[in-house]
Design a protein around this nucleic acid. Structure first.
Lengths: 184, 184
DNA sequence: ACCTGAACACCGTTCAAGT
DNA sequence: ACCTGAACACCGTTCAAGT
């Protein structure tokens, strides 16, 4: 069918990284879920690094599309920022996709260079998009730069706290501070 | 001397978890740094879980002392909160000790129950202390509860962002938002 | 009391070999 | 084009054995 082995591997790896982390998941457990041998995964992805890069790039490109969609659809920059919060909440609740990047960010010092570069690009994508919306809303360049980092720290810290406390409400409480930053 | 093997193992493990994560560090690499065999580490810590718990507990008890010291020394609750920010910044800059808990928080779903419980206690310690200071400063119980989570999310998100962007200034920019939350 | 060597089932990776 | 079996050096863990 359309769902080939390669795509299934990426999806399983995504889930595994989100829940347990990059260095904790194994080719052998992925292979077992797919009904093949671990050596077969190396046919699709020569090394674990290649697979990790693909997972990160996969998610980043999907987020980029979503961000472009919001910015194109919603002319009010403050409303666009509210939509970003909604995306983060959904991703956090349903899939674990958002968590992939929080996991990789925490592990970053242990990751191969290629994945580190991918994560750096992920930060830049988010920070630049948030700062652009803040600029549109009338803030100065300096203010936008600072506030973008504060908002993103709240998003990441809120996700980690909700996970650490095993309490989705944690994220929502933290998001109230984001609202205040957006509308001030 | 006073520095026995057991303490050295904890210190090395602490550093290893902070930089690479719990599942990424190995007994064999610790043993090599100590000039002993990996089987010898199991004499001091039966399993990796025991060592992980000890590292987490070790750091948490030190933080608890520091928090009690601040609260006892500084009667002004807002100044006490400022001191907490200073502690986080120092720990982030010099040792990697603060990062231990950010790492473990990210990996939490993959950790043994005992370490998960230790992390939960770490969150409670921080959140309750922050909320207590906010209560003293005149906020209501509900406001203190919410603001404590927002401040802690900024602290954790700021640490992760500084690491992910490899830029210590990231943390300081995020802390400006913490100041605003403290003095509002 | 503290350490070691050897074994176990795990891991990523390689490669010749199968279809 | 896709998968396998067998081998390699790694991992946590156990345990009998050394001092």
């Amino acid at each position: 069918m359309t769902t080939n082995t390669r795509d299934k591997i990426i999806e399983l790896a995504q889930e595994a990284i989100a829940t347990r982390g990059y260095s904790a998941f194994s080719f052998r457990e992925l292979a077992a879920e797919l009904g093949i041998k671990s050596a077969s995964i190396h046919y699709h992805f020569p090394t674990k690094t290649h697979l990790g890069v693909e997972v990160a790039r996969n998610y980043r490109s999907r987020l980029q599309l979503a961000l472009e969609h919001i910015a194109g659809q919603e002319p009010d920059p403050k409303e666009a920022l509210e939509n970003l919060v909604v995306i983060f909440r959904q991703e956090a609740a349903t899939s674990q996709r958002m968590t992939v990047c929080t996991m990789l960010a925490a592990e970053i010092k242990n990751l191969p260079d290629e994945i580190q570069r991918e994560m750096k690009a992920f930060y830049d994508l988010n920070l630049n998009w948030i700062a652009s919306r803040l600029l549109e809303s009338g803030l100065s360049g300096g203010e936008s730069y600072e506030k973008a980092r504060q908002i993103f720290a709240l998003l990441q810290g809120g996700l980690m706290g909700a996970k650490g406390q095993n309490d989705p409400a944690y994220f929502d409480v933290v998001m109230k501070a984001v609202q205040r930053l957006i509308h001030s």
